[in-house]
Structures are given as structure tokens and as C-alpha cells.
């Protein structure tokens, strides 16, 4: 059952990721990206990471993609549809991606420790959000505060960047 769910959502995710790369219309690419993120959240659920799955849907499929679609509609991008991809780009992209996948398959195939199934959890009804929260606020408190400063800096930067006259 779990294997079937894993394959369904992985194949869905990879199919929509293919759509992101190969669809010509930027709006179709963005909608495929939303579906990729939702399928990835489902894959997170098969790994018992419920909090991360919810955050994935809220932040990525919600906030980030709304921003993307908003910008696509702000800029009028219809003229971009006709352009062709150069053959040298196809060749370079194919070589780099093929080499990367070959390296990963080689490593995964030659490492027997990776081929065990999931170990059983000691407490099947564990509280996922409490675990993430305790780790975040106890062991990673300083990075958490720094990330708050980073968000503030990003907000100020975006407001400055999107003013009409850049000095």
C-alpha cells in the first residue's frame, strides 16, 4: 500500500516537473510547479513528516506560487513563446543531467546500507509538530532568530527594489 502511494505521488511529481521544464507557456509551467509541490507534500507524508508537508503546501504551493503567478501576469510574457532552444544547449543540458543521474545511480547501487526498508517508529502515534518545535526552539534558537532578521532584510530589500525610480 505504502509502496503504491509512494510510486503514484513520485511519478505524478516527476511528470509535473517535466511539465515545468518543457511547457512553452510560463503560466502552464507555474501551474505544473504548483502540482509538483503538492505531490511532493504527499511524498513527505509517506515519510511521516506531517509538519513539513503542511508547511510545504502553505509556503510553496500557496505563497511562493501566488507570487510567481502575480509576476507572470504583471509582465506580459506572450512574446516569449516562439523562441527555439539552441542545439548546443540541448547537448550541454543532456550531458550534465545524464552525468549527474549516472553518478547518483552508481552511488546508490553500490551502497548496501541504503536498501533497507523504513525502521519502525517506537511510538506510532508520535507528535510530529512537538518534535519539530522542541528541536527548533531548544537546539536551533539562534539560527531561528537569525532567519527572522533575514526575512526582515528581504522585506526591506524588496520594497526598495520595487520602487519606481532606482537610485
Amino acid at each position: 500500500m505504502q509502496l503504491a502511494l509512494f510510486w503514484i505521488f513520485s511519478i505524478l511529481m516527476l511528470a509535473f516537473a517535466l511539465g515545468v521544464v518543457f511547457l512553452r507557456n510560463p503560466v502552464s509551467s507555474a501551474m505544473s510547479l504548483v502540482m509538483t509541490f503538492v505531490a511532493l507534500a504527499a511524498v513527505f507524508v509517506t515519510l511521516d513528516a506531517f509538519f513539513i508537508a503542511v508547511v510545504q503546501v502553505l509556503v510553496y504551493a500557496g505563497a511562493v506560487m501566488v507570487l510567481f503567478l502575480f509576476i507572470i501576469m504583471l509582465l506580459d510574457l506572450r512574446a516569449e513563446k516562439q523562441r527555439k532552444v539552441r542545439p548546443s544547449a540541448w547537448l550541454g543540458g543532456g550531458l550534465v543531467v545524464g552525468g549527474f543521474m549516472a553518478a547518483i545511480t552508481q552511488v546508490v547501487a553500490g551502497w548496501p546500507a541504503l536498501h533497507h526498508t523504513k525502521p519502525e517508529l517506537s511510538d506510532p502515534s508520535f507528535n510530529d509538530v512537538a518534535g519539530v518545535g522542541f528541536t527548533l526552539f531548544r537546539d536551533f534558537n539562534l539560527p531561528f532568530q537569525i532567519i527572522g532578521v533575514l526575512l526582515l532584510v528581504a522585506t526591506v530589500g524588496v520594497v526598495l527594489l520595487s520602487r519606481k525610480e532606482l537610485k
Binding site: A17, V21, E80, L114
Partner: peptide, 27 residues
């Protein structure tokens, strides 16, 4: 049951697709 190798391969494929998007697309 899926093993860690399954997840790593799917993750590698997703990364390759993102890399292909960066290398192939000009938008």
C-alpha cells in the same frame, strides 16, 4: 515498502529536472 534508495533516486531525478530547466530554458 520503499527504501532510502528509492527516495534518493526520485530526489536525484527531481534535481536533474530542475537543472535541465536552468540549462535549457532562456526565460
Amino acid at each position: 515498502m520503499p527504501t532510502l534508495a528509492h527516495y534518493l533516486l526520485v530526489s536525484g531525478l527531481l534535481f536533474s529536472l530542475g537543472l535541465a530547466g536552468v540549462l535549457l530554458r532562456r526565460n
